[in-house]
Amino acid sequence: MGVLLSLPMQAQVTVDASIDSLELLIGEQTDIHLEVSLDAKQRIQLPVLKDTIIKGIEIIDIAKPDTQMLNEGKRMLIKQKYTITSFDSALYYLPPFEVKVNDRSYASKPLALKVYSIPVDTLRPDQFFGPKDIHSVSITWNDIRWIIWFALMILVLLTAGYYLFKRYRDNKPIIRRIHVEPKLSPHEQALKDIEEIKADRSLLQNDSKVYYTKLTEVLRNYMKERFGFNAMEMTSSEIISYLMEIKEQNALSDLKSLFETADLVKFAKLDPLMNENDKNLVNAVAFINETKIEPDPNAKPEPTEITVVEKRSPKGRMILLGCLIIIAIAIVVLIYLIINNIIDVWF
C-alpha cells in the first residue's frame, strides 16, 4: 500500500508525491506518482529526469503528464507517473521532487524505498539445485493445426487454380452453359436440317458444292438412323444398291438422280440450274416422308439431348485472369504463414 507525502508550499501551489510500494524484490517494478495543484494561469516546469532518480534507482518509463481542470477552470491538477526498479538491495532515500511554478521552486517531501534480495539458506547448501537438463517438448495438435489447415487451403487453391488455368488456356468459360433439348426422331431432325438449308438462299445461289454436300449429309444421317447402316462411310452407288434391296427401284429413281447430281457437282464441277436444285431438295423431302416411321404415341419418350455451349466473352477472360492472380497471391501468403509456424514450432 502506497504512502502519500505532501507539502503545501503556499495557498496556490501544492506538490504531492507517493509510491505504490515501500518494499521491492530485486528487479521488481513500482510507480511513483507526482501531483501538482496550481492556479490555471500559472506556468509550471516538472522535474527533468532521465535514466535514474538516484544511484541504484532506475527509471523504466515516464508517462505523459495528465492535466485536469478544477473549480470551473480556475485550478489545475497535473499528474506525472514514473515507473522505477532497482537491481541492488538497499534502503534508498528518494529526494524531494522539485517543481518550478512561475520560476519559483516547490518540492514534495522525500520518499523511502527498501529493495531486498531473496534470502539464501547457507546452512543447508544441499537445497541448491544446479541447472536442469534440456527436455524436449512433445508437439501437440495446437502446435501444428494451423500448418495443416494452411496446407489444406493451399491444396484447395491449387486444385481451383489448375481448373481455372485450363479454362483460360483453352479459351473456355468458368462454367459451362448446358441446354437441354428434346431428342427428335430421325425424320424430324432431317426435315429440320433441310429447312435450314432451304432458308439459306445465298448458299443455293452461290455455292452449289456446299449446298449438295450439306443436303447429302442430311440424307446420309437420316439413312443411318432410319435403316441402321453406316451411310456416312459409303459411296452414292453403294447407298442406292443397299436401298434397292429393301425398296422398289422405281421409288429410288429420284433419290438416285439426286446423288448422281451431287457427285457431278463435287467432282466434275457441274453447276446445275436453279430449278434443278429446288427439284432435288423436294425429292430429298419426298424420300424422307415416304420412308419415315411415325413414333408410337404410347411408347416411352426418348431421352433429351444435352448440348454444351462453351463460349467466353473478353470480359469473362479478364475475370478468369483476375481469379488466377488472386489465387496465386493467396497461395504465396499461405506459404509464408506455414514457414513462420514451422519456425515457431521447430526452431
Rank of each mutant, 00 (worst) to 15 (best):
L22Q: 03
L324F: 03
I240Q: 06
W141R: 06
G228Q: 06
I194K: 00
Y162A: 12
N289P: 01
S202G: 15
P303R: 10
P95T: 01
S6T: 09
S105Q: 10
V15Q: 01
L219H: 01
A262R: 00
I32Y: 02
D296Y: 05
I246E: 15
F287H: 01
I175K: 11
K269M: 08
K132R: 15
V115W: 07
L258P: 00
E305Q: 12
H179N: 14
I53A: 00
K266Y: 12
S237N: 14
W149K: 13
A251W: 14
E290G: 11
Y336S: 02
E276Q: 10
Q42P: 05
N289V: 11
L243P: 00
L270F: 05
L34F: 00
L157Y: 04
E260Y: 02
A17C: 13
H179Y: 09
P119A: 08
T216A: 04
I84R: 05
E310H: 01
M76C: 09
Q205A: 13
D263M: 06
N206P: 10
I54D: 10
T122Y: 05
L24C: 06
Q12H: 07
R176P: 05
M76K: 07
I174C: 12
A151L: 10
K214H: 05
H33V: 13
N341G: 02
A190T: 03
I19N: 03
R169K: 13
D263Q: 02
R167P: 00
A107K: 00
S18C: 12
I175D: 15
N71Y: 07
T30W: 07
K300G: 09
G2F: 13
I293A: 13
K269N: 14
I293T: 06
F165I: 04
S108P: 02
P301M: 14
K214A: 04
D16W: 08
R75Q: 15
V332C: 06
Q205W: 08
C323R: 15
I335P: 02
T52P: 03
P65L: 09
D66C: 08
V333W: 03
L281Y: 10
I325W: 10
Q29S: 09
T235R: 13
S208F: 01
R75G: 08
W346C: 09
P301Q: 15
R145N: 13
V48D: 15
H135W: 12
E233M: 09
I178G: 11
L152D: 12
A190H: 11
L184S: 01
